[in-house]
Design a protein around this nucleic acid. Sequence first.
DNA 1: TTGTGTTTTATTGCCTCC
DNA 2: GGAGGCAATAAAACACAA
Length: 278
Amino acid sequence: MVSFEDVHRARDGSSKSFFHSYDHDDNGDDDLDDYFHQPEKKRRLSVDQVQFLEKSFEVENKLEPDRKIQLAKDLGLQPRQVAIWFQNRRARWKTKQLEKDYDALQASYNSLKADYETLLNEKDKLKAEVAVLTDNLMLKENGKGNLSELSGINPSKSQEPPQKPVTDSVSEGEVSKVSIVACKQEDISPAKSDTVNSDSPHYIDGVHSSVLEAGDSSYVFEPDQSDLSQDEEDNFRKVLLPTNIFPKIEDADYSDQPTNVCNFGFPVEDHAFWSWSY
DNA sequence: TTGTGTTTTATTGCCTCC
DNA sequence: GGAGGCAATAAAACACAA
């Protein structure tokens, strides 16, 4: 338990008035105040008193009646003053925590935004690759058709082994893998690494529990991989299977997928991620 | 010295809990 | 219904640049 004498002696060893730091102000105003029956002027607590209250607040930020009386006695204050001080101190503490929470969420948001943009670029690259592959296949099929017409040979019974589509850099399997890997959860939920120290039991890694309860990042941003892989595979089948009618690449547009390839729920401006409450 | 922004102390009104 | 907590706010005290 902290005692006011300990704190006070540790500072300067004196035992002056609790309002010693404002003594220079106390010239004759009090007499005038008494004369006009005005309420006492608002006075700041001394450094020692504040220090003592701070230590007490660190121990427990709520004030039971007994403790309030004891603190008031120790500090030479009215119990009401002690209560008010704790009230205001809790308000300041809460404001600070809100700022910390905001910073943590801001960092998380920025990181997720960067990931999202990376994925968009990846998508564009893959789209371009699909266009190239489609062109190659069309050229090949056209070439085969002309050849069989000329020679009268059925291409399906040709001696040549079936040719794999020529790919510049990435095979079909690799393309699908890239998409899925890019959506792995640990790549898109860096929020947990943002640590803000907090004294409160309501704060976990610097993020208020209400934020976590509302849905931690691994839940909110969990990609729906079944939807993703099915759509992408369908598009690739349409494009790559020779028995299908070749669609134009514009027809295989991904842009109508409202939540992009990973179902992140962006645009983030109105994302539920920001809607937390206290 | 003075104007202005910030911090601290205190009040008020509303809400919840016992 | 009273006690205590909180949000909003007033007002005094303080800090500081011009």
